[in-house]
C-alpha cells in the first residue's frame, strides 16, 4: 500500500513545491519592480549589466542568426521550388524569422548564454555571503544586484532578437541570391510586399520583450533562491536553462495566439 502511495505522494509534493515557487517568483517579481528605482536612477549599474548580458551575447547571436537564415534559405528554396514559387523565398525567410524563429531562438540562446551566467553569479554571491553582507550594510540586494540585471535583460533581449533577424535575413539572402542565384530585386520586393511593419516586425519585437522579462526573471530568481552551495548553484543554473526553454516555448504559443 505504502509503495503504491509513494509515487502519488511524490507527485503531490512536487506540485505543491511548484505552486510554492510560482507564488515566490511572483512576489519576487513585484519586489524587483518596487526596487527598480535605483537601477533606473543610477543607470550605470544597469549599463554594466547590459554589457555582460547583451554585448557578450553578440557573437553567438550573430553567428547563429546567420546560420539559421542560411538553413531557412536552403530548405525554403527546395520546398518553394517544387511549387514553382521560389520567388517568395524572401518573404518566407523574413516572415519565419520575424514572427517566430528570431524571438524564440534568440531568447533560447540568451537563456543559455546570459541567463545561466546571471544565475551562477547571483548564486555564488549568495553562497559566499555577499548578498548578506550587502543587506547588513543596509543595501537592498534586490535593488542593487537583482533589479539592474533584470532590466539589463529586458533591454538586451529585443536588441539581440532584432540583430538575430537581420543576420538571418542576410543569411537567407546569401543562400537565395548569392548561392542559388535568385533575383535580388524579387527577393527584397517579395519580402517588402509581404512583411507588415506592425503585424510582423513590431509584434516579433514585443514577443522578444516578453521573453526577455521571463528569462531574466527566471535567471535572477533561480540565483537568488539557489541553495548556497556549489551543488546548489550548479543545479540552479541547470534549472534556469530548462525552465527558461519551457517558458519561452509556452509563452510563444500564448503570445502567438493573441497576436496573429
Amino acid at each position: 500500500m505504502n509503495a503504491l502511495l509513494a509515487p502519488i505522494r511524490r507527485l503531490g509534493a512536487l506540485s505543491i513545491n511548484a505552486i510554492w515557487r510560482l507564488g515566490f517568483i511572483s512576489r519576487f517579481f513585484v519586489a524587483i519592480l518596487l526596487n527598480s528605482g535605483q537601477s533606473l536612477l543610477r543607470f550605470r549599474l544597469t549599463i554594466r549589466e547590459v554589457y555582460f548580458a547583451g554585448v557578450l551575447s553578440l557573437i553567438i547571436i550573430i553567428v547563429s542568426g546567420l546560420f539559421v537564415g542560411m538553413v531557412l534559405g536552403l530548405q525554403g528554396y527546395n520546398t518553394l521550388a517544387r511549387f514553382g514559387s521560389a520567388d517568395a523565398l524572401g518573404a518566407l525567410v523574413a516572415l519565419s524569422l520575424l514572427r517566430e524563429l528570431g524571438p524564440v531562438l534568440a531568447a533560447l540562446l540568451f537563456a543559455s548564454r546570459s541567463g545561466s551566467a546571471m544565475t551562477a553569479e547571483i548564486g555564488l554571491m549568495k553562497a559566499t555571503e555577499q548578498l548578506e553582507a550587502m543587506s547588513v550594510m543596509a543595501v537592498n540586494p534586490i535593488a542593487r544586484v537583482v533589479a539592474p540585471r533584470f532590466w539589463a535583460g529586458v533591454i538586451s533581449m529585443p536588441i539581440l532578437a532584432a540583430l538575430f533577424n537581420v543576420m538571418g535575413i542576410f543569411g537567407g539572402y546569401l543562400v537565395g541570391v548569392e548561392m542559388i542565384g535568385l533575383d535580388a530585386g524579387t527577393f527584397w520586393s517579395q519580402m517588402q510586399n509581404n512583411v507588415d511593419l506592425h503585424y510582423d516586425v513590431v509584434n516579433g519585437l514585443i514577443k522578444s520583450l516578453f521573453f526577455g522579462m521571463a528569462v531574466t526573471l527566471i535567471a535572477v530568481f533561480e540565483g537568488y533562491d539557489a541553495t548556497p552551495t556549489a551543488a546548489g548553484v550548479s543545479s540552479a543554473t541547470t534549472r534556469t536553462v530548462v525552465t527558461s526553454a519551457l517558458v519561452i516555448l509556452a509563452l510563444d504559443f500564448v503570445l502567438t495566439a493573441f497576436m496573429f
Binding site: R48, P158, A162
Partner: peptide, 25 residues
C-alpha cells in the same frame, strides 16, 4: 564598458531600422 554598450544599442537601433525600412514596407 560604456563604449561597448553604446555600440550595442547603436547596432540594435540599426537592426530595427533595417527591419522596418528594408524588410517591412
Amino acid at each position: 564598458i560604456d563604449l561597448w554598450v553604446g555600440l550595442f544599442v547603436a547596432i540594435g537601433i540599426a537592426a530595427m531600422t533595417f527591419l522596418s525600412l528594408k524588410v517591412a514596407n
